[in-house]
Every structure is written in C-alpha cells, then in structure tokens.
Write a protein that binds this DNA or RNA. Structure first.
Lengths: 228, 228
DNA sequence: GCATATTTGTCCGTATGTATA
DNA sequence: CTATACATACGGACAAATATG
C-alpha cells in the first residue's frame, strides 16, 4: 500500500504542472474566446511579453501552439494575428460538424447514462441562462451542448477536434452584433434534439441535426455578408 | 545517438525557405514517418539543434508544433520523446477513422471525378508496388488511398485531421515486424472498395469499410500484445 | 522612392530548476 | 545524498523584413 501510494506520487507532476508557454497559451486562448482580442488584431511580441512578464522566446512558443489551433495566424516577418474566418471557413467548420455530430447521434444507442447527463446539464444551463437574459452564457452553454454531444463518439481525439472547432467558431460569434438573436432560437431545439436521442429515435435525431446545423450555418454566413 | 545525429546533418541544406521552425518541423516529421526516429526515443535539444544548425529556441518552436500533432510527447523538464502509442490510442484512431472515412463514403455520391481519380491513382500505385515487392511503398500508397478517400468529405479541416491521424498511425506501422503481412491483404480490398464507390453502391461500400477497418485494427492490436 | 523606425526572426550566454545515475 | 546532465526560461544582441513619414 505504501509502495503503491509512493508510485502514484510520480504522477503528481503530470497534473498541476505545465510549462510557461502552455500557461501563456491558455491565457491567450481565453482572451480570444471572450473577445478581448478581436479577429484581425495583431499580437505584439513586445507588448504581450511585457504584459504577461514572459520572454519573447517563451511567448513565441505559445504563439506556435495557438497557431496550430488556428486561433492565431502566423505571417512571416509580420507577426501573429487573431484569425479572421472567411465564409468558406464557416462552411468548412459546418462540414466537419455534420460529420462528427452526425456520427455522435448514430453512436447514441450505446452511450452511457453519464454521457447523456452531461448533455442534459448543458441544455438545462442554456435554458436557465436564457430565462435570465444572459445571452453570452447561453452561447457558452450551447457550445457545451455540442461538445458533449460530440463526446458520444467516445473518442478523445474527436473531443479535442471538436474543442478546437468550437473555439474557432467563437471567433465568428463575436462578429455577430446581436447574440440573443443568434443563440435564442437554438435553446428549445437543443431540448428537442436531446429528447429524440433519449427516446432512441436516432434517425429522426439525425435529420433534425442536419436541419439544425444548416440553419445555424445560414445565419452565420448571412451575418458575414451584411452589405451585398 | 551519435550516428543518428551525424546522419541528420544531411538534412541541413533543406533549410532555406519560410520559417526555420516550420522547416525544422517538416524535417523531423519526415524522419519520424520514415522510422529514423523510433517511438520512445528522446530527441535532445542540444544534439539535434547542433546537427541541423539551428538554435535551441528555434528547435523548441518546432517541437511545440510536432507535440501538437501528437508525434512528439513533451514531458516537463525531461525533454521531448517520439510518441509511443498504446493499444487504446490505436482504438481511438480507428474510432476516428470510422467516423471520417464512413462519412466520406456517404459523400461519394456527389464527389468530383478528380477526387475519384486521386483514389484510383493510389489504388494503382499500391498494386504496382505490391507486384514489385516494395512493401514499404505499399504502405505509403495505402495511406494515400485513405487520405484521398477522406477527401471526399470536401473539408480542408478533415483533410488535415486525417493527415495527422495517418501520421500517428505510421508510428504503429513501424512497430510491425513484417510490413508485407500487414499491408498485402489490403491492396485488393482497396480495389474492391473503390469499385463499390464508383458503381454507386454506397451502402455496401459503407459496410465493407467497417469490416476493413475492423480487420486492420485487430491486426494492429494483436501485434501490440504479442505475449499474452 | 527614400530614409528611418519598428518589429520580427534567430542566435547566444546564462541562471535556475529538475531529474537521474 | 551528491554530482552531473539537461530542460526551462530569461535577456541581450543583431540581421532582415516591414511599416512609416
């Protein structure tokens, strides 16, 4: 028992600790998600390094990480910029969503009850936030709904792909002027989708998801071309 | 390690365009793919930086990129190691393949003829390499077959996901002692799959793909637990 | 189009912390 | 437990590319 505990402690550092570059990347990722840094904005190595109290080398490592997540764009000799998504990017993101979330629906037959509970939580949270007019939080809960839906695939890699995909989508959400108009209609539709899944009507859920994603994509693309 | 580093210096002249960190990452990625660096091997900042003639800062940026692609594993204060995949990793990779390639099959109805031509090329290349006993090349062509198959989804992000996934799988392939035994059976099956797709028998192709991937996964997992 | 200032790209030296023989 | 090797992180330097007046 003592030996077992001693051995466990070897794993301790694998949890709480991380490199400075990763922690910096976490901070910047949050800042991008919350819209503090806006798409197109240049992130100065000098300024941000000084603000966070890290060296340029360390900061550049963090930039590489976020560049790989497509949240930042690296332009040679010009610096890093918060990614600006095109309408084509939005279309591509929704192609991926149809594939991953569509597969998740088909996997719902043999999903654990815990997996369903996580989805149910997200739906309830969205409804609560909507009742209280916290539309930013509705958006966050919506994202959590889809993240947990995708988790029905039971693949940690797809979870990670989904996480990055939704982080990218947030870049678009911030462009939307009216968060309520965009998020509100989907709250009851999340509920519908959940009930179809829980009652085992998989085919129907699949069709509903297609329509759902089609509508969401259309709204985003419309907001992208306001003057046309 | 000394010999390895000496041989690495052959790659020195490939440095010349775009960002140094990215080019270094390209070189290391190729080296991992070809099995020059083997799973579990530690990549010394000092030795590799010297061999490629780049500073440790630049090399660390490249390491970050490959770590994000799951080809390298970052252990804090211990360095970077070529990723060692577990049986669970293999299972997860095949879960993702079923999702992405399965969706690709369903997308095959409205795929361009150019997309089919790319798949056909890969099949033919695999057959040619098999006839000439170039089993390493058969493996490469097989990978190209699945990459092009996944491309039927028409999503650049899924293409990239697939590219990374197959790069990870290569890590496992190198563990297999007998490349012929693993790759050969799939050459005619690639052809079958292609013909099902080209004749529009999508449902049948979907089922064939499931069996295909199931068999491939089983072979890999078996090779992973030789003593049981 | 030019000259200058700014910023990135890259390298180096070094101090500190961490892991391991 | 100590010594050694190595990763981590910082700060300075300079060339090259880019932006600015």
């Amino acid at each position: 028992m003592d030996n077992a505990v001693a051995e466990l402690e070897h794993d301790r550092d694998r949890l709480g600790r991380s490199s400075t570059a990763e922690r910096v990347a976490d901070i910047l990722r949050d800042r991008i998600a919350e819209g503090f840094f806006t798409p197109g904005q240049r992130l100065s190595e000098e300024a941000i390094g000084a603000a966070l109290g890290v060296s340029r080398n360390t900061l550049r490592e963090a930039f590489r990480l976020l560049g790989h997540e497509r949240l930042l764009e690296h332009r040679l000799n010009r610096g890093v910029f918060v990614r600006v998504l095109s309408a084509e990017d939005v279309a591509d993101l929704y192609r991926v969503r149809r594939v991953i979330e569509g597969a998740a629906v088909r996997h719902s037959r043999d999903a654990s009850s815990a997996a369903f509970a996580a989805i149910r939580d997200a739906v309830a949270e969205a409804e609560r936030a909507a009742r209280e007019d916290r539309w930013q939080d509705v958006g966050t809960a919506n994202i959590r709904f889809h993240q947990n839906l995708a988790a029905l695939n039971g693949s940690s890699r797809l979870d990670e792909t989904m996480r990055q995909l939704l982080a990218e989508l947030r870049l678009v959400f911030h462009v939307m002027d009216n968060p309520r108009a965009f998020h509100e209609p989907f709250v009851p539709r999340n509920r519908e989708l959940l009930e179809l899944l829980e009652s085992g009507r998989v085919e129907e859920a699949g069709r509903a998801l297609e329509v759902y994603l089609g509508d969401a994509e259309k709204l985003l693309v419309q907001a992208y071309t306001p003057r046309a």
